[in-house]
Amino acid sequence: MSPLESLGINGGYLAIQIIAFIVIYTLLSRFIYDPLAKALRERRERIAQGLEDAAAAESARKNAEAERDNILREARAEAAKIIDDARSRGEEVAAQIEAEARADADKLRADARAEASQQLEQQLAGLRGQVAQISVAMARQLINTEIDSKRQQALVSEFFSKVPAAAKGMSGKVEVVSAMPLDDKEKDQVRKQLGADEVTFIVDPSILGGLVVRGQDRVIDGSVRSGLSEMAASLN
């Protein structure tokens, strides 16, 4: 036995193994290595491309985000401005409405007061005739004399609107307090007698009769009440 034989080396088997290797190499190259290596290369390129695209998309996204932030900031500022405007306008309107309401209320109140004083004056005017008749009747009883209606009218008029002598020729603003409301004729007369620039008429039934004239610096009391109280003091 040759040494090669005892090691089992045989040219035939060697040739078969070498041929088998070549065949396997060819088949694997054709069906696995070449296509798979190509696929791997393509995939690597595609991944690189994808990464590039992703980077581009990332930068685009960052730009878009910055822009969005800008827009948001502007919008927010505008919104704040609009809200401020609305608030100030609202406050103005509210103030206006309040002022109008207050004016209305004042007017209403003034109207109501004027009406009330007018009514009071009317009632007092109505009362004045009765008081006059009652007092005339009482005076007739006392003096037993007939007083004709014209005379009676003059008496009443005098009673209620007799301007004290001391008050004549007063100047400036003058307040005239009467016990009963004076009619326009009487007012003219009083004004004429006083000779004052501005005359304000006030009704105060507590003075009973006559007139109290209040000037700027003095008061002339020509009221029946003061006359009565003087009378009472002298009687005592």
Binding site: I9, L14, I16, I18
Partner: peptide, 12 residues
Amino acid sequence: TDLNLTIALAII
């Protein structure tokens, strides 16, 4: 474990 395979591969 057969030299034919290993020697064939080595020759290749």
